[in-house]
Structure formats: structure tokens, C-alpha cells
């Protein structure tokens, strides 16, 4: 098999106090795959995603990134996070920095990239997400869709090999969802490995290679989009799809 395993997790468990949130998750993400993670609110999707870049600390289980098991106690997590970009529901842009400053911050401060080089890379990324004219604008001047595209550009500036998206369009007005999904789709087509938590079923159908359905801290069902949406095996999945498609 010549497709690389970018992420592999075995029997991942995570609790918040008495609340057992992730109950033995197994999952593999191959290079250039787009995995859409769906499930009801509170099922543990965000927690799983956050465990993948170690914003949350697992209780037990293994997380293997590019063939190397990560030990949060001894490994340099910052180095790993450089390779794993993350896009948040609420953008989390730095409000005191311009669009350009948002994008060049980490490359310069973390990777020690030369400023000129960081700027020219940022401009490239901004034109890629269609915002080359917003260079010197502060985030509060942008629409939600524009903010999220800047956030994507900011993550890409670190040249990650994996991108995680946590409901990237859930905070957007409906008319702004499309522009962000289009950017993500383009990224997928370029071969980026992506794990996307989303409620956008049309996007999942069209772009995902794999759908993973979570319920109550467990993966209930997974499959390719065609099989998953037209012929779900599990009763829980069928119920979930009925309620979400009605929405």
C-alpha cells in the first residue's frame, strides 16, 4: 500500500471529570483524504479534533502522526502543531493585528521565516482565498466569510500537512457559507489531508472521501459518501440523517 497514514488513532479515550467524552475511538486518515466528521452536538467531535493537535490531552490510547506515535509528555507538541493546521468555528483571528500581520505572525515568530519572504507568501495565500485587497485591514472590518478565509490562509502559512476544521461555517450567515466551502474544496482538490467537522451535508457528499458518524463519544458508522448517505447500515445513522436532512 503506498498511501501514507497521516493520522492513526487507537482506542482513544478522553474524559472531562466524570464525563466520558471519547470512548475508544479508532480512526485512520490517509494522505490527501478528506474525512468529514458528523454527528449531533455534544457527541465529541470537537474534542476528537482537539485531541488530534493536542489542544486537549488524551487520557489514554495512541495518536500516531505520520507514522510516529506522539507522547505529549516528552514530544515537542509545538513542532507537531506546526504541521497540523486548525480552523475554528469562531475564526479566532488576532483582532489587534491586520490581516497580513495575522498571517505572517507564526511563520516569522515560530519558524523564523524572513519577513519579506513571509509577506510575499502571505500575499500569495490571500489571493488564493480571494482577499488580496484586504492586506492592511483589521479583522473587525471583515465579514464572517472573509474572516474564515483569512483564518484558513493563516493556517496554511505554516505549510501544514494536515488541516483540521471545526465547524468552519457554523457561525456564518447562510449567504457566506458558500465562499468558505469553495476555498476548502479547492484545498481538498490540491491534495490537502483534511478532517472536517461539519453539518454541511452537501459539502460532505461532494468533497469527502470518508464520512465518519459519531454518537455519544463513539464512532457508530463510517463509509464513503455514496454508501453512507444512500445506504446507511446503522439505525442510529438512519435516524440522524433523517433529522439533519429535514433541517
Amino acid at each position: 500500500m503506498d498511501t501514507k497514514e497521516m493520522i492513526k488513532i487507537n482506542q482513544l479515550n478522553k474524559s472531562f471529570g466524570d464525563l466520558h467524552v471519547l470512548k475508544g475511538i479508532d480512526m485512520t486518515v490517509y494522505e490527501s483524504d478528506v474525512v468529514c466528521l458528523i454527528g449531533a452536538s455534544g457527541s465529541g467531535k470537537s474534542t476528537l479534533l482537539r485531541c488530534l493537535n493536542f489542544l486537549e490531552k488524551k487520557d489514554n490510547g495512541n495518536i500516531i502522526i505520520k507514522g510516529k506515535e506522539v507522547d505529549p509528555n516528552t514530544d515537542n507538541l509545538n513542532k507537531i502543531r506546526e504541521k497540523v493546521g486548525m480552523v475554528f468555528q469562531h475564526f479566532n483571528l488576532f483582532p489587534h493585528k491586520t490581516v497580513l500581520e495575522n498571517i505572517i505572525e507564526a511563520p516569522i515568530m515560530v519558524k523564523g521565516v524572513d519577513k519579506e519572504e513571509a509577506i510575499s507568501k502571505a500575499k500569495q495565500l490571500l489571493s488564493k482565498v480571494g482577499l488580496e485587497d484586504k492586506l492592511d485591514v483589521y479583522p473587525n472590518k471583515l465579514s464572517g466569510g472573509q474572516k474564515q478565509r483569512v483564518a484558513i490562509a493563516r493556517a496554511l502559512a505554516m505549510e501544514p500537512e494536515i488541516m483540521l476544521f471545526d465547524e468552519p461555517t457554523s457561525a456564518l450567515d447562510p449567504e457566506l457559507v458558500g465562499e468558505v466551502l469553495a476555498t476548502m474544496k479547492e484545498l481538498a482538490e490540491e491534495g490537502m489531508t483534511m478532517v472536517v467537522v461539519t453539518h454541511e451535508m452537501d459539502f460532505a457528499k461532494e468533497v469527502a472521501d470518508w464520512i465518519v458518524y459519531m454518537h455519544d463519544g463513539k464512532i457508530v458508522e463510517r463509509g464513503n459518501p455514496e454508501q453512507f448517505f444512500s445506504n446507511p447500515k446503522e439505525e442510529r445513522t438512519q435516524e440522524f440523517l433523517k433529522t439533519t436532512i429535514l433541517k
Binding site: 493537535n53 486548525m86 515560530v110 505554516m158
Partner: peptide, 21 residues
């Protein structure tokens, strides 16, 4: 809280995020 997480997710250390963000 999302500001610290954004910094961390970009590979910035806690101290660096504190200082810069």
C-alpha cells in the same frame, strides 16, 4: 480563550502567545 488556542494551533508556545497575542 480562542486566542490562546489559535496561537497554540499555529505552533506558538504558551509564552510566545501570551506575549504576542
Amino acid at each position: 480563550k480562542g486566542q490562546m488556542e489559535a496561537g497554540r494551533s499555529l505552533g506558538m508556545t504558551k509564552v510566545l502567545t501570551l506575549r504576542r497575542v
